[in-house]
Design a protein around this nucleic acid. Structure first.
Lengths: 205, 205
DNA sequence: CAAGTTCTTGACCATCCAGTCCAGAATGGG
DNA sequence: CCCATTCTGGACTGGATGGTCAAGAACTTG
């Protein structure tokens, strides 16, 4: 249970920023996975005592869930920034984003991949909350892609007869696939080629 | 270290089949992930004492690595069986396989996904042996798909001017993406639609 | 400034778990 | 039929780790 509610006016104030702690915690979970991450390490990395950590977040699982949520929200926000914009440049934004994901995955020397993928892979069979967050996140990204595709259609860069939702689903799967292949140290060239091919097969008007 | 070498004529013979034990171990790792799997549980599930397990496989990590190898080899073998055959039906086999993966992923009620994906996600940052096996496995599947695509091209079902390697890479990414999305409990319909769309965008002659 | 509240620290606890070890069982060779 | 060898089972150990707690620090309110 979370004990320290942080309801505004408190006696002794928090000595830390919750979001900052969550970012550090995210790094720890990211590096090793949920089960292998140690609460002591997270405490050390944040500079907090374990009591504060447990007081603020309840237990390891809830700490992870919070970090996971923040991370996923950030992901969606990043995709939104990358894809939002005027129809005229929608296709170019889509293209840039898909290639950027491939390049980012390829240059991830640590092979840690994305916490969304890692967390979902590790915990989907055991924690419904993780599944729910992952689903929401994927759905949000799917919609962002779909609306970017629709923009590209209006701009005449993608066949207007195609179903934007279907193309978005395909692109989302490709993105997640690139991420998965990247963790197996697939060559940067291969990943980029996959991204290019995905863009190339999109139906032109 | 592995102590029991099993070099043919031994004093007291093994009471178990190594492959069978690896299958059971695979199930355990699959259900919970590597870090969360307990050697005691694996021993219980196989009916072996821990002494025998450690004698035969060395330690938890090597046991996992062996199980992972066997699992991946089986995966490749399954794909080979699904995709090998005459050119005339190559496209149909490809189509059936892609749809089958989507359906299988969708009907995986336990959301455990594929051990290849799960193991790679969890351990790619920490165990080079896992990365190596994953890469080999993906490369093998990639080649199988490429050669099936080439067959479909010879049969006139796919544009002969397309690069089969590029299309194979794209399809592999889509398959891995479907797997990833499936763990987030994406609807069976969505997964199948992604598979259908991937097949639909393949360039026809 | 006293009282009341909440946060912080880190020692402490109870449990869990990978890996060890040994006494005994099963087998083949001599 | 006995001995050397190898496997088996499970009790045991040492260390790690999630979570608790109590004493004290920091702040608000009256």
């Amino acid at each position: 249970m979370v004990k320290n509610l942080y309801r505004g006016a408190m006696a002794r104030p928090r000595s830390f920023d919750e979001d900052e702690v969550l970012r550090v915690a995210t790094d720890q979970f990211w590096a090793t996975g949920y089960a292998a991450a140690r609460v002591d390490d997270i405490a050390a990395a944040t500079g907090l005592g374990k009591g504060s950590l447990y007081g603020a977040f309840g237990d390891k699982r809830h700490l992870f869930l919070r970090a996971f949520d923040v991370h996923c929200a950030g992901l969606v926000e990043g995709v939104r920034r990358a894809l939002d914009g005027p129809d005229a440049s929608a296709f170019e934004r889509l293209r840039a984003h898909v290639l950027a994901v491939a390049d980012a995955t390829a240059s991830d020397v640590s092979l840690r991949g994305c916490l969304l993928a890692k967390g979902t892979a590790e915990l989907s069979g055991q924690d419904p909350a993780v599944v729910a967050t992952a689903r929401r996140t994927f759905a949000a990204i799917d919609e962002l892609i779909a609306s970017c595709v629709a923009g590209a259609q209006r701009a005449g860069d993608i066949d207007p007869d195609a179903d934007p939702a279907r193309l978005a689903g395909l692109l989302l799967a490709v993105l997640r696939g690139i991420e998965a292949l990247g963790k197996a140290d697939t060559s940067p060239d291969s990943l980029r080629t996959i991204a290019e091919t995905a863009l190339a097969v999109l139906p032109r008007p």
